[in-house]
């Protein structure tokens, strides 16, 4: 790898010269350590039940679909019916997420279930979510051995199993949750997903499914147990 240390020294030196004295450094380091919140919109600072409703409303507004289910037990039926309703093949690629282990897939033998990262021909993925941000109807998915990122982008249809308790109000709430789950570290990828893939690049007409999923279907599980 090329040595860029002289460029580094010159860039930082130039910045320091232009800025003059660097008395702000302590304040900057404090900011990094304490990550204070900025103004957080009031919109999602509401009781949790309302946050769940707001999430569903906002997600629907950006062309995601939301279906409420009483428990994980209903997921196979809901997935099968959703796919049948769209005339889609009943072959799903499911994240190796332990959270989805509790889903009784075998209740629907017509569903072909395989697990792992997405491969090119996979048309339908099923994943969990780390959190969901009510403020903008945004899903937060993080990468890891149990949550391959390819599942979020390669298939044409992305089905997300979201537990009610995973819904938070604001982005700041979601970051706090992430810091609590992974102290001092970050996953390789955090995907904040707000509706399906879209483009307005041709004549400014919004079309869904540009590179990522054309459909984003959220199964909102009301029962938080397990």
């Amino acid at each position: 790898m090329a040595d860029t240390s002289s460029a580094r020294a010159q860039i930082l030196g130039g910045i320091r010269k232009a800025l003059g004295s660097a008395d702000g450094a302590d304040e900057a380091r404090r900011r990094l350590a304490t990550h204070p919140r900025n103004l957080v919109p009031a919109r999602a600072q509401i009781p949790h039940a309302d946050q769940v409703e707001l999430f569903a409303t906002m997600a629907t507004e950006v062309a995601a679909t939301v279906e409420r289910l009483p428990s994980l037990d209903e997921v196979p039926r809901a997935v099968a019916e959703y796919l049948a309703g769209l005339n889609l093949p009943a072959e799903i690629r499911v994240a190796p997420d332990p959270k989805l282990d509790a889903v009784p897939w075998d209740q629907r033998p017509t569903l072909t279930v395989t697990r792992g990262r997405a491969r090119d021909p996979d048309a339908i993925s099923v994943t969990g979510a780390f959190a969901a941000v009510a403020e903008t109807g945004t899903l937060m998915l993080i990468s890891g051995p149990e949550h391959p990122t390819t599942l979020n982008f390669m298939p044409d249809t992305h089905i997300v199993v979201l537990k009610r308790g995973e819904v938070v109000g604001t982005y700041e709430d979601a970051w706090d949750r992430l810091r609590a789950a992974m102290p001092g570290a970050m996953p390789r990828t955090v995907n904040l997903i707000t509706g399906p893939s879209r483009t307005g690049d041709i004549e400014q007409r919004i079309e869904l499914g540009a590179h990522g999923p054309r459909r984003l279907h959220i199964l909102l599980i009301e029962d938080d147990a397990g």
Binding site: T138, P145, T149, P187, R188, L192, T194
Partner: peptide
């Protein structure tokens, strides 16, 4: 838009055990 469809935070290369990235 309230938010773009994809906001992606990328940190380093894939981690041990990651199956993609």
């Amino acid at each position: 838009q309230e938010a773009s469809a994809y906001t992606t935070v990328s940190t380093g290369p894939k981690r041990p055990g990651d199956v993609d990235g």
